[in-house]
Computed example of a mutant assay.
Amino acid sequence: MIEIRRSVPEDGSRVVEIWRRAVDATHDFLSAQDREAIDEMVCGFLPQVPLWLAVDEHDDPLAFMLIDNGHMQALFVDPARRGTGVGAALVRHGLALHPGMTTDVNEQNGQAVGFYERMGFRRTGRSPVDDQGRPYPLIHLVHSPASSSG
């Protein structure tokens, strides 16, 4: 059984572990230098920000989502739990709070693009670089309830 709850400071190390494992499994397009720089930035802020966590029956985090003003800034699932509905449960929770939620996804992460489209997101634009100006194009998405199948 998956439950959704807010993060607490004690979740910090597990959240960073989930982020690292998920990035290693899905972001093979990152250069080693960029991966290291992003890791340093993420470790500095991720444990401090309020997150939504999907947790198992033992209250162990399996995935997390960061939403800021209706924009999903991050969704990361432990690779051992991918395909089990954990990410979809978090997205549905986010959509219950923010029906017109937006997000950005790395264009090179085709599995994530497909996931969001299956969840009812539609493309609204594209940026040739990521938020830090690195050469990782982003696809901008908005949830469109009429097209949701998840």
Rank of each mutant, 00 (worst) to 15 (best):
P135Q: 08
N69Q: 10
S144D: 15
G120Y: 06
S148N: 07
Y136D: 05
E117K: 05
P50S: 14
P145W: 05
N69E: 15
S147K: 01
G114F: 03
V113C: 09
G85M: 04
D131P: 07
H143P: 09
R126N: 11
A89G: 14
A88S: 12
G114H: 13
P128M: 10
A146H: 05
H58W: 08
S147G: 09
V77C: 08
Q111W: 05
G150C: 00
E107H: 02
R118G: 11
R82V: 05
D59G: 08
P137V: 04
R134G: 09
R92L: 13
I139D: 02
V142A: 14
L62G: 03
P145T: 02
R92K: 15
H71R: 07
L66E: 07
P79I: 08
R122P: 08
T102H: 04
F115R: 04
A74N: 12
S147C: 06
H98T: 09
T124L: 10
V105W: 01
L90V: 04
A112L: 02
I139Q: 00
G83C: 04
R122V: 13
S148F: 04
S147V: 09
G133A: 11
S149T: 10
G100P: 07
E107Y: 03
H98K: 11
H143L: 06
L62P: 04
V55K: 05
Q108A: 13
L95P: 11
D131E: 15
I139F: 00
Q132A: 14
T102K: 08
G150F: 05
S144Q: 09
A89R: 13
